[in-house]
Every structure is written in structure tokens, then in C-alpha cells.
Amino acid sequence: MRPLTIAAGAASGGLDGHVLGTWVAAALTLAIFSFLYKDNPVYKLAEHIFIGVSAGYVVCLEYWNVFVPNLWNPLVSGGEFILVVPFALGLLLFTRFSPRAAWLSRWAIAAMVGSYAGFAVIGALQGDLIAQVRAAMIPVYSADAAASLGAAAGGNDYVFALLAVLQNPLTIIGLVTTLFYFFFSREHRGGLGMASRVGIWFLMISFGASFGYTVMSRVSLLIGRLHFLLSDWLGVIR
């Protein structure tokens, strides 16, 4: 199918798609940023445009990437009539709009839930549980790291050689104590209480690291938007 296009370049005598796109993007960016002042009609307008466009985008992607190649073409052109079953199940989902017939949507939901529960069991088993347990099977003591510590001259070299020696023991202690913290079958008192408290410390370090990482990624996005406004739109910086 021939795509609908906006003519690129003023030389063609048409609408310059790049310039128009930059102005549209800049206007929408400023509209969203206006929320920093307060919730206002311009922000609300942009917000609703965003919801509408995002919803339309998802439907178009599903139509062209799933419905046409996985259902329509094999069914109509390929004669795979068994695909009438998922087609019918998919249509049954829309019975949610009718209170009397809504129970029929459960068949389609059950097919989805059953399949994805199967995927989840396999994925969690192979991707997370076994992989993470295997990655945790490390020696407590690393002779190479200890040798590096002995040869370290001092300063940063010594600090990082010491951290390398502590790497494996801390990884094991951190994992075991974190698992103790998530063990709720016994009250966290005595030895278990101490271990779970150390687990909390590791969790706090992890949450702090995740928080710092998230802040920096958001700041990076902010810099990207400001760079777009000052460079692509206004041309103030090169």
C-alpha cells in the first residue's frame, strides 16, 4: 500500500514536512511543559491529544503487525480456516459491552490467561529462577582478586582491588540476606531478624541506586527536550 506522505522539502513546492513537524513537536513540548506552572487548558489539550494518538497508534500497530499477517491473510488467502477460532474468540471479547452476554468474553480471556500463564511459568523458570541461581554460584574467595590486592600500589588502585576482593562475599551475603528478608514463614527475631535487617540494608542500597539511575535518565530526557527546543526549533545552539 502506498503510504500517505507530507512532501519533504520546500523545493518541491509542497508543505515542508520537517519544518512543520518541528513546529508541531515544539508546540506540543511547550504545552506539556506548561504543567510545571499548573494544570491548565493547554496542558489538558496536549494530554488528550497524546491519549488519542497513542491509542490510535497501538490499534494501527496491532492491525498491521498482528491482525493482517497472523489472521486475515492466512485465513482469507491461505485458506487456514482453523483461524476462525481465534477470530471468534477475539470478537467474543467485545461482549464485555453487553452485561447479559459479557460472560462469553471469559472464553477469550481464559485462552489469553492460560497461554500467558504458561509463558510466565516457563519464562520465570528459565529466564529468572535458574539463570539467577546459576549466576549466584560463585566462589567466596577469589585468589586472583587477592593477588591484585597484594600488588596494588595504593590510592585508587588499592581501593578498587579491595572492592574486587569483597565482590563475591558481598554478592553472596546480599543475596542470602535479601532472601531471608522475603522469608515470612517465621517471625524475624534472633538470627533471622539480624539477617533480614542486613537484607533490608542491601535492599535500601538497591533502591537508592535505582532511584539515582531513574533521576539521571529523566534528567537526560529533559536535556534532550531542551536541546530540541534550543537547537532544532530555535537554532540558538548548534
Binding site: G127, D128, I173, F182, L203
Partner: peptide, 20 residues
């Protein structure tokens, strides 16, 4: 890579058991 990963690994193992 060390304290963060140790805690994340514990969370992932717990979450995987829960998902299963």
C-alpha cells in the same frame, strides 16, 4: 554490580517463584 545486583537477584528469585 555488587550490592545492587545482590539485592536485585534476591528480588528476581522471589518474584520468579511467585510468578511460577
Amino acid at each position: 554490580e555488587v550490592p545492587n545486583m545482590a539485592a536485585k537477584r534476591g528480588i528476581m528469585i522471589g518474584a520468579a517463584l511467585g510468578a511460577i
